[in-house]
Design a protein around this nucleic acid. Structure first.
Lengths: 197, 197, 197, 197
DNA sequence: TATGAATGAGTATTCATTCAT
DNA sequence: GATGAATGAATACTCATTCAT
């Protein structure tokens, strides 16, 4: 819709296909560099990996947050979509929540530095917050409410807070063998089950 | 020894007193800048705040980690010393642990960016890790073992991992009113009480 | 190849021409600054003289040695190429050697500080050594061997050693009217003629 | 006089002896540091080695050249005094010259960086030049004149120029096994024997 | 549209030299 | 006289971002 006349079915804009292909190869390159050097990698490295000029990066993704967002959009979407499904297929809402959080952790832990940048409050990362949190918080919220509704948890913890917490626990998890983010997240979720101390 | 014998009453080295005073005002300035701009603040900013040249900073604290450590040494010590005391005065070991963790959170939450830098694995922050973790992990460990010994928790979670987790939860806590690190930490500690899922 | 095919007549990459022009003005500026302040002049001075930002210097010449090398490349080449020619046109190989060394001295003496940096063994000047010595030592070697073959000199002095010696004699020659590097070099070359003492 | 009652024969000024001792230990320390790190070593290193404050260095030796001069004064003197003696004891003046130059080379080659600093023309090293050249040039001059008088050399090369040349040849000699300053100096001296080309 | 050259602010760090104690 | 703390100029280098071609 936003993108216009796709409903017409015709060739539309050939440029368009080109640009899209270009953008995708950009995203692939960025993803690769993110894995290798973290999401704070120099713009030029990404451009070099993609075989384009830095200007092209900036054209497509004015801010770094835009780029990060785009790179992970698919996975964000997948994560968001998994929520309702897990709610249906799991034994209890709390189990669904736990499994969904697992997905989120899987997502973050493999992305070098993503969790860290996710909690940055510097302006310009608002886009990133929007993409991540605006998209996922409602899903998480639904799961939380279901669990609360089922009496499994009685916390008044908000979804935003929970996700921030989980995100934080994932910071620096990669590369430190003495630190297992999943274990801590599991404790956190377990803690939801019983009365606050 | 060289200047520790102030009990003798002699002047010893007058310089020393001067330098010490200076060092303290340096620490005050650094603390202030850390609060305002985080522990990664430019050295020059700290020097300016303290009204000294950058060289003076480097003289007293060759690395940034040395400075950070010094700034927080008192609080680290206080935290470390509180452990055994809490164990004696609390109703149960788990309660002692919870209260001790509270102290640790209090400490971190008010230090802009400290938690973040605490999990940095870049070389040069080893000193920082040493000061923080080497000092506090044993205390935390003792509390954990006491609680485990009392059968209150049965986790095999190590003290290092717990502290890292708590530290992470404190990242970015200041300044985001929607995020309450204490609440999440409380959940984590609560989670310790029951069987891992 | 990418831009070497200017013979085809097409525009190829217009940028390239621009950048090349820019690079040349950079070299001019650097040469001027080298004359004025020596080859160890601050990067910023060179940038200022060229009217560009420091980044531009670094883009074109990542290390100082690269810059120095580029500045003098033409003269190095000319010197290298003169060797065989002199061998053909001179009365004797020793005469050719003497005249070639003269060229080398002419080159060095007018470059403030070049001779000094040429003997630096700090890493990062390897490029410089390569450009200078790797290029010129073989030429000098050929001349030496020819002279030895003709029975004019019987020294076992190596070309590297000779060039280092000549280079050293040129250090500080400019600006001291009491010191004439050429005269000393001539003595050295003359000394090659007779038995070592 | 200025120093007071030395005429009385009593203890004179104990300070004096003290200061001299102090100055000597300073020179020892400086010599050691010069060997280890070159004559351009940081002042503070020298002070540390000597176990004194930097201020003490500056009091005794306002400029670095003063310090260098003082450190090598004994050897300069020894070198200067050797000239006339060699002239008497050697077979010919040229042989005396060659041997004297050998002494000079021995001196320089073992002093990391001394030869390099010796040719510096930055103001502030005048003292150094004075100490070295003013003292040694006359000696060298005498040797040169003797050799010229004996018809062994007919060069009009001045002593200053010769010494500068020899000094230059010694630059960077230490540490480069491919470069033997003595051999080159010998060539230079040999070159003195025959007609300039 | 794409390119990538140019820019220059930002930061760390060293070290000679001064001067209050 | 001795000390060494303080100073700050000097310099290298990186990298995000802009803009002419």
């Amino acid at each position: 819709m936003k993108d216009g006349d796709e409903g017409t079915g015709q060739a539309a804009r050939p440029k368009r296909a080109d640009a899209r292909r270009n953008e995708e190869s950009l995203l692939d390159a960025a993803a690769a560099v993110f894995v290798a050097s973290g999401v704070e990698a120099p713009v030029r490295d990404i451009a070099a990996k993609a075989g384009v000029g830095v200007g092209t990066i900036y054209r497509h993704f004015p801010t770094r947050a835009d780029l990060i967002t785009a790179v992970y959009q698919h996975q964000i979407d997948a994560c968001a979509e998994a929520g309702p499904r897990l709610l249906e297929t799991s034994a209890t809402p709390h189990a669904a929540l736990a499994r969904w959080i697992d997905l989120f952790v899987d997502f973050l832990v493999t992305k070098h530095g993503l969790a860290a940048v996710l909690q940055s409050d510097s302006p310009g990362f608002e886009t990133l917050h929007s993409s991540f949190l605006d998209r996922l918080v409602p899903v998480c919220s639904e799961l939380l409410e279901a669990a609360a509704g089922a009496g499994e948890i009685h916390s008044d913890l908000g979804a935003y807070e929970l996700m921030r917490g989980v995100g934080n626990l994932c910071i620096g998890a990669e590369g430190d063998s003495r630190y297992d983010a999943r274990r801590l997240v599991a404790l956190l979720i377990a803690g939801l089950r019983q009365p606050q101390s």
